[in-house]
Simulated assay, not measured.
Amino acid sequence: MSLDFDVNLDSESEDEPVEDGDTIKNIHEVFRKQFSISYSECASLKKRYITHAANSVDFSKIVIGIDKEIQIYDVTSSGLSKYVGKNDFGRFDHPISGIKFFNNDNNLICCSTISGEIHMYDLRNFKKVFTFEDDTEVVVKPVNCFDINASDRLIAAGTDELNHEVYLLFFDIRERRLMGGFFESHQEEVTDVKFHPSKQDKVASCSTDGLINIFDCSKESEDDALLYSLNTEDSASKLKWHNNDKLSCITNTNDLHLYDVNTQDLMKKWTRSNITDAMKRKSVIDCNIVDCHNIGDEMMFLATSNYNKGECVRSLKFNEKSIDPLCDFIGNTQILRASLYNEKDDVFVTCGEGALITIWKEGVVSSTVSTKESMKEESSVKKKLKKKANPY
């Protein structure tokens, strides 16, 4: 089934939200593929949000960012196995703004915070290798996002607005130094930076100013490096590179744009209302896009409704012509903030405001669930046993 929309269709009014629900009775006749929870791990007993997640290229490891802390997990045949390192490992004084594995080494990761630092860690010994930062001025440039290029040689980081200026900073990973920065191409905070998956010098950045800028960072000057700008006429939030130099952008208003970077054309635009219709849901104000992913030569996005603790989660394929229903996810209990996709094994990982890391597989799966409630019960049992063993 193919769902096509008029790109000029205006979003529904969000002033009068409605109770969300499916617009059709037999939803599985449209979303014929169902995913169930294979494993769920609770990262914290406290009310904390998982805001960032990253996976190694071979999907053997997952790192999450939860407030001011990162947690590392091995992906096993039965679920997840948490790394237990030093007490001070992966804990920061400021909130995390990004996490990224190296492309060619599953043991190296970088983590950024809004304090302007990008910390590089080696997971083999839980040691910090280096901290990248722009220390050329007294004022700290807060890092909002960053990425590592295909050769693991460069880091590009986007900053928040500082004294009416916004920066794209570039670091040389091997030489451990700041290479320089651009500060004229964006007027408001940079919300995402994404290197091309194979062209190591090509990088895209987006901002709340509505611009998506494409750079060739092998050029020394900003004027020479800026190849072209794409105007979303919205507040841009997330970028994703796809095959044949296609680039998707999720806006802060939950619209989805698809561009051909080579021709600089907007291939298609879907509004939040279009996305809601494609999900077969009623309430526009509740429906959001979590992230975009690649599935073979095709493109896909994961969307959710925040109604009733985010119980509705669905994935849909898209191209320059239409949106096609793909998967329905059964049993979600949290509002989602991040998603990962293992294309090789057709496995999803989601994280969110319930501090849960959930692994999804197709079909009905015997689930192993570690929820906050079960963790609290286990903690309570341990306390009772300890008290009972005390002879006094």
Rank of each mutant, 00 (worst) to 15 (best):
L3F: 05
F5R: 02
F5Y: 12
D6Q: 00
D6L: 02
L9D: 07
E12K: 11
E12C: 09
P17I: 10
V18M: 02
E19T: 13
N26A: 13
E29L: 11
V30A: 12
F31V: 06
F35Y: 13
Y39I: 04
Y39G: 05
C42W: 02
A54Q: 00
K68T: 13
D74T: 13
V75C: 04
K82A: 08
K82L: 03
V84N: 14
D93H: 10
I96K: 06
I99C: 04
N106R: 06
I109L: 01
C110E: 00
G116R: 04
E117G: 03
H119I: 04
Y121P: 00
L123S: 02
R124Y: 02
N125F: 01
N125W: 01
F130V: 07
F132L: 10
E137P: 05
E137Q: 14
V139M: 12
K141N: 09
K141Q: 10
V143H: 07
N144K: 11
C145E: 08
C145P: 08
I148D: 03
S151W: 01
S151R: 12
D152G: 04
A156P: 02
D160Y: 12
E161D: 12
L162Q: 13
N163A: 15
H164E: 15
V166T: 09
L168A: 08
L168T: 09
F170C: 10
F170H: 10
I173W: 01
R174L: 15
E175Q: 14
K194W: 00
H196M: 02
C206P: 00
D209W: 00
I212A: 00
N213H: 03
F215G: 07
E220R: 15
D224Q: 13
L230D: 01
D234F: 00
K240M: 14
W241H: 06
D245E: 13
K246H: 09
K246T: 14
K246V: 09
L247W: 03
C249G: 08
N252I: 04
H257F: 13
L258W: 05
L258Y: 05
Y259A: 09
D260L: 06
T263D: 04
D265N: 14
D265V: 08
R272N: 12
N274C: 11
K280E: 09
K280A: 11
R281G: 06
V284W: 04
V284Q: 15
D286G: 06
N288D: 14
I289N: 08
N294L: 04
G296L: 00
F301L: 03
A303C: 11
T304L: 09
T304H: 14
C312L: 10
R314V: 02
K317H: 15
C327N: 10
D328G: 07
D328C: 09
I330Y: 12
I330H: 10
G331Q: 05
T333K: 15
R337G: 04
A338S: 14
S339G: 06
Y341A: 01
K344N: 07
F348P: 02
C351D: 05
C351L: 03
G352I: 02
E353K: 08
E353P: 03
A355E: 06
A355K: 10
T358S: 11
I359L: 14
T368W: 00
K376M: 14
K376D: 11
S379A: 15
K383M: 11
A389M: 14
N390H: 11
N390Y: 11
